[in-house]
């Protein structure tokens, strides 16, 4: 790991000032992704500002039924919170399906939003990767791309977004609150993560001098009936091949409200708006679920190694909606 200077920020103001004034400054939260990337030589900050002592660790209920989650709330605390577990079971479940208990005790909500891809070629300094070294090419294309994205990829990058939590946040229309010396911004989650296009190294809408301070969950009554389903290569402690965050309201056999987001398949946490549109007003049947999944996956593009994800995503969407219908919420 390259040497760096370290500073523990006593308050938000200091943290923002240091990052505004410095070059190559990175905020350190739980470290579960950043430290690993630094050890691999992929991230090489000159200065690391520890933000874990900042007072951004609250989970508060908002007037109107939403919840505000501090950026430094650790994953395990978020998943354990009873408000989250009952109001947004999909979020608690998504978090619990990520990483391991040890990592969840360290990782923060803000850091999870910035988690970087697990693409094998991104992680290997000897390989060409437009995300790691802009303009160097993409060795994943034509290489081991079983984990690669089928939605939102470009000819420059096929790397899938690895987060579970962010998939649930995408489904919930969360809002990311960020702050810099220039002021506070509120970024809808749909705009927070970017598609790779021809700039795959720019992954989020967060500016270089901004700090994530909180995530706001709007009131989403349908989320009370929600679930997260993760499909992976072993029973635990592995990244998603496909994951589905889903919420469903059915009245008299007809879908009155549906929310769906996908993980493991998109270059960003993938809100399945086409599927949602197809579900709305449709009969709550397996056929309709399948048609909705197909509507979303019509745009999917795959190579020989990840073509199975299209079928797997279709089946996992159907299975998750079926389970919501028959067994109800994960709460």
């Amino acid at each position: 790991m390259r040497s760096f200077s370290y500073l523990s920020a006593p308050d938000v103001e200091t943290a923002l000032r240091v990052i505004a004034d410095g070059e190559g400054v990175k905020f350190l939260g739980g470290g579960t992704n950043l430290v690993d990337l630094m050890r691999e030589g992929i991230e090489r900050p000159a200065t690391v500002v520890d933000i874990t002592r900042l007072p951004l660790t609250g989970i508060e209920e908002l007037p109107g039924g939403g919840v505000r989650v501090g950026a430094l709330v650790r994953n395990s605390r978020l998943a354990a919170d009873l408000l989250i577990r009952t109001r947004y079971p999909v979020l608690a479940q998504a978090v619990l399906h990520g990483a391991s208990a040890q990592l969840r005790n360290m990782a923060t909500v803000g850091g999870n939003l910035l988690q970087r891809t697990r693409c094998l070629y991104f992680y290997d300094g000897a390989a060409a990767c437009n995300k790691r070294a802009p303009g160097s090419g993409c060795d994943a294309i034509g290489g081991f791309s079983r984990g690669g994205a089928i939605l939102g990829a470009s000819e420059h990058c096929v790397a899938a977004h690895p987060s579970d939590m962010a998939v649930a946040l995408a489904m919930l229309d969360a809002v990311v609150e960020v702050e810099s010396v220039r002021g506070v911004r509120r970024i809808p989650i749909a705009d927070f993560h970017r598609l790779p296009g021809d700039t795959p190294h720019i992954e989020t809408a967060l500016a270089a001098d901004e700090l994530i301070t909180a995530v706001e969950l709007p009131p989403v009554p349908v989320a009370a009936n929600s679930r997260y389903r993760k499909v992976r290569d072993r029973a635990s402690y592995a990244f998603a091949l496909v994951s589905v965050a889903a919420a469903l309201n059915v009245e008299d056999g007809v879908v009155t409200e549906a929310r769906l987001a996908l993980g493991g398949v998109g270059t960003k946490p993938w809100r399945a708006t086409e599927a949602e549109r197809a579900l709305l007003g449709a009969p709550a049947t397996e056929d309709a679920f399948r048609r909705a999944a197909e509507a979303e996956l019509a745009a999917a593009v795959a190579g020989p190694q990840n073509a199975f994800k299209i079928e797997l995503a279709r089946r996992t969407i159907v299975a998750t909606l079926r389970r919501l219908l028959t067994e109800g919420s994960a709460a």
């Binding site: 697990r118 094998l120 070629y121 290997d124 290489g143 081991f144 290569d233 072993r234 592995a238 990244f239």
Partner: peptide, 13 residues
């Protein structure tokens, strides 16, 4: 390309 325990999947508990 998967020279690590995160991507070489040995069985877990």
């Amino acid at each position: 390309m998967n020279a690590g325990l995160a991507e070489y999947h040995v069985p877990v508990h």
